[in-house]
Design a protein around this nucleic acid. Structure first.
Length: 852
RNA sequence: GCUCGAGUGGUGGAAUUGGUAGACACGCAGGACUUAAAAUCCUGUGGCCAUUGCGGCCGUGCGGGUUCAAGUCCCGCCUCGAGUACCA
């Protein structure tokens, strides 16, 4: 065989490993560039050809940047905690650690044979104690922090305690669950457990009783982003709402900063939009309605305070805490029945039966703050307990859900905007004139909102408010294969295990199942105590380890810190991140949150982890479906590499189509790419497959072919258009082939040019060219315009916009001359049919258009 | 429902700012080499009509518009994909 890819690829992979060719230095005079791929979960199935797509793209870019004289950090690792290994452990009894190590070995072998330029010295595994020591350490920093809204950053919990000791809750602006109010003297009188309970409401990692998504089949709670269509993302099991004591992360404190931060990021608009929606900022007002014959008030959030006179009733979520208090004796039975009904409806039913209107009257009334009118208070499950205050002021004229509810239960639908027609449904007018609204009459919506908020504030019943949809993230998982939470309980008080005791190692257990009492698997561990006190038995979620791993790569062996200051200062953050769009609301949001937090606590100098993000598309199977074992349509990269080689696989995956698009695998066209590489090889070899290059000077045509290619390829890499880069190479090789070119002056730079794409082939040719060192650090060729300059251009000549013939004209010809020459041409005469042209448009170096 | 993204040959896809639509590749057809095959190379290949020489007409989801010129810009639809969903 002429082009012996098997031999070549093995040879260079071994060389790179021995030579440490791609080890990045933490101190370098060169400019840094950090290219990262989302690290994989090492599943038992191994890689299929879809996985390396992003890795190939990032590798091309990383190699390109090295050629461009950057100090490139391009590491890889494993997100090695997770459910599948644990499920397998439950079934077989095999320790997830063993399964995970086996899977990692497979992944590594598969990755190695594709020829990636990863710096493997920096590999991280989230399930390694040396790694999760720092995940636990960050958790403790969060536990020991609160959010100061005055300074708009996280601060040490000690500062909060000092504040309490000095002024109590006076002048305190903190993000918290409970708006408490006490003096310094009162604080000092509280006992340790009371103080601990108060502090817990301020901590950024906190324990609270809250409604969580409980998945009985997986035996764990799940975060909102781990649920899709009302079932668990992994396994598709049903999820129910359950009140449980859980660890949560106060990400909501960062809502505004997470939203604002998006502006500076070079991410695709759709991904930013998904995060914006997830954060869900809305402006409006918070209003309290006093309940007739009760002390309590119902607080609502509305985006349309201008429609306050359109309120005809109130609706509470069935779970709302005031429901029991305000329900009258006559209504008790009905309300109880409805609460039961609502609780029994699963998330899924609630979603599929959106149109089904249901509710019940509590018997209670609130007083309208401006008209004094009595408005009935209902409960209904279209009001969500988890959003806003779990209560709404119903404006049936403007809100379709309120309208449906009012219509079903025969409640009033007062119109408050001029020309509003509420006979068929609600009419949500965002721009109009207010009517039937006392002091708001005659105002446009915008002014009315301002005036209404002003009136509400004057009355002392509420204020303008910004609301966010994003909730705090539940952090506990009742599972085995995750980071233990470094907290122990002394007299019921949650306390941090001291930093010097970390890592808190995952204990051995007899079974990976919950205990008979429903406690998490860690409760099975013998002596799971710290100084005689029980240690937390839940573990951390999958996103814990992946929220900060980018920083560990900077200094992955560090024993004294998650990374040294020097390394963090030098590498800062990821310049270019590759990964799937499915992590938009999970990983990408949490990593941003932890980065901002670590910045606040002065462990980092950057407040965003990933500056530029590329979302590679999926590679579908040839049948257009997703590649999956289930459909038996998986293509294994091992097979492709064995048959065609890694360089062919790399080029082919890029050639399939635009990186960000999903596209089907196409086995037959891989031949074309392989053929191209053989052609490429043959440029450097004679008929006997002997490496022979001519030293004579290259012709203008040969130089033009090369420099055209340099120009295009460089441009295409810069804009991540790798498919067109491959075709540019094909064009160049076809041209050089036609010219019978085997000149060193052309082929030496060409080898460098192709090296990010087909690195094994490039190294081989480079060494045959007589070079002793790896091609990977050689300067990338730069195109020279002088080789591209043409003296003439073949103009397409159009008549009335239709291209009729081509005419070669010198480039230095003036517009007038071009016009004359074109019109004088005999081909033009035919189209003119003796008529005089109305107008002739000449665009130099582009086209000529004659208007007849 | 809302928000994005996309519709180009038999197929994957090219065509940054409006300026030769279909680059490059696959597939297909024909040919060269060969006893034959593989490999390789050459030619053709959007559709329709004409093919005796030229050639002509139509073509980027559909319908309009702007322009000397529209795959590209504007307006209105259709289809597909993704995300999201009682968010007050």
């Amino acid at each position: 065989m002429d082009y012996n890819f098997q031999e070549i690829e093995q040879k260079w992979q071994e060389f790179w490993q021995k030579d440490q060719t791609f080890a990045a230095k933490n101190n370098s005079a060169k400019e840094k560039f950090y290219v990262l791929d989302m690290f994989p979960y090492p599943s038992g199935a191994g890689l299929h050809v879809g996985h390396p797509l992003g890795y190939i793209a990032s590798d091309i870019y990383a190699r390109y940047k090295r050629h461009k004289n950057f100090n490139v950090l391009h590491p890889m690792g494993y997100d090695s905690f997770g459910l599948p290994a644990e499920q397998y452990a439950i079934q077989t009894g095999q320790h997830p650690k063993i399964t995970t190590e086996e899977n990692i070995a497979t992944y590594r072998r598969q990755l190695d044979q594709i020829g990636f330029s990863f710096d493997w010295e920096r590999e991280v595994r989230t399930s390694n104690p040396e790694y999760y020591k720092w995940t636990q350490w960050i958790f403790l920093q969060l536990f020991n922090s609160w959010y100061n809204q005055e300074t708009d950053r996280a601060e040490s919990i000690d500062a909060l305690i000092k504040h309490f000791e000095k002024e109590g809750t006076d002048t305190l602006k903190a993000k918290t669950d409970s708006e408490l109010s006490f003096t310094a003297a009162e604080w000092k009188q509280k006992d340790e457990s009371q103080q601990a309970a108060i502090l817990m409401d301020y901590r950024l990692a906190y324990l609270s009783d809250s409604f969580v998504n409980w998945c009985p089949a997986l035996g764990t709670v799940l975060a909102n982003d781990e649920i899709k269509d009302g079932v668990s993302e992994r396994g598709g099991h049903p999820v129910e709402r359950k009140k449980m004591k859980q660890w949560s992360m106060r990400i909501s404190a960062y809502a505004e900063r997470l939203l604002q931060g998006l502006e500076k990021l070079e991410w695709s608009e759709p991904i930013k939009e998904i995060q914006r929606n997830w954060i869900g900022k809305s402006k409006g007002a918070s209003i309290r309605f006093s309940i007739v014959e009760h002390e309590a008030e119902i607080e609502v959030f509305t985006t349309r305070p201008d429609t306050i006179f359109g309120v005809s009733f109130m609706v509470l979520a069935p779970e709302h805490e005031l429901v029991d208090t305000i329900t009258t004796t006559e209504q008790k039975t009905k309300i109880e029945a409805y609460k039961k009904y609502a609780a029994a409806r699963s998330e899924r039913e609630r979603m599929t039966e959106v149109k089904k209107v249901s509710g019940e009257f509590t018997g209670a009334f609130v007083k309208h703050p401006f008209t004094g009118e009595k408005l009935p208070v209902w409960i209904g499950d279209y009001v969500l307990a988890g959003y806003g205050t779990g209560a709404v002021m119903a404006v049936p004229s403007g809100d379709q859900r309120d309208w449906d509810f009012a219509t079903k239960f025969d409640l009033a639908i007062p119109a408050v905007i001029e020309g509003q027609d509420v006979s068929e449904g609600a009419e949500d007018k965002k721009d109009g004139t207010i009517t039937n609204s006392d002091f708001l009459n005659g105002l446009r919506v915008k002014e009315a909102i301002k005036k209404a908020i002003h009136a509400i504030e004057e009355k002392g019943i509420g204020s303008g408010k910004v609301n966010y949809r994003m909730r705090d993230a539940v952090f506990s998982r009742q599972r085995y294969w995750g980071e233990p939470v470094p907290i122990y309980f002394e007299d019921g008080i949650a306390k941090a295990i001291p930093e010097q005791e970390l890592p808190l190692q995952l204990p051995e257990v007899d079974k990976y199942l919950p205990t008979e009492d429903g406690e998490p698997p860690l409760a099975r561990a013998k002596d799971w105590t710290y100084k005689g006190n029980l240690i937390e038995t839940s573990t951390m979620p999958g996103w814990a380890g992946s929220s900060w791993y980018l920083f560990r790569y900077m200094d992955s062996q560090n024993k004294n810190a998650f990374a040294s200051e020097a390394a963090l200062d030098y590498w800062r953050n990821v310049d270019l991140y590759f990964g799937g769009a499915e992590h938009a609301t999970g990983h990408l949001l949490y990593a941003r949150f932890w980065t901002k937090f670590l910045k606040d606590r002065e462990y980092l100098n950057v407040d965003e982890p990933f500056q530029k993000l590329i979302n590679q598309g999926m590679i579908l199977a040839e049948d257009g479906q997703k590649m999956s074992k289930r459909y038996g349509n998986v293509v294994n990269p091992d097979d492709v590499v064995a048959e065609y080689g890694a360089d062919t696989l790399r080029l082919f995956e890029m050639f399939l189509g635009p990186l960000e698009q999903s596209k089907p695998w196409d086995t037959s066209s891989i031949e074309g790419v392989h053929r191209f590489l053989r052609k490429f090889w043959r440029l450097y070899h004679d008929n006997e497959n002997k490496f022979t290059l001519a030293t004579e000077k290259a012709s203008a045509e040969e130089l033009k072919a090369l420099h055209k290619c340099i120009k295009k390829v460089t441009e295409y890499i810069e804009r991540f258009s790798f498919n067109t880069a491959v075709s540019a190479f094909m064009i160049c090789v076809n041209e050089l082939n036609d010219l019978n070119c085997n000149k060193k002056e052309i082929l030496e730079p060409l080898a460098v040019l192709v090296s990010p794409f087909a690195p094994h082939l490039a190294e081989e040719l480079w060494s045959k060219l007589g070079h002793k060192f790896s091609i990977s650090q050689v300067d990338y060729p730069i195109h020279e315009e002088k080789h591209l300059i043409e003296s003439a251009h073949k103009y397409p000549v159009s008549f009335n916009g239709k291209m009729r013939f081509m005419l070669e004209l010198p480039l230095d010809m003036s517009k007038d001359e071009i016009e004359k020459t074109v019109l004088a041409d005999e081909q033009a005469q035919k189209w003119l049919e003796g008529k005089t042209p109305k107008k002739v448009i000449v665009v130099p170096k582009k086209i000529v258009n004659v208007v007849v």
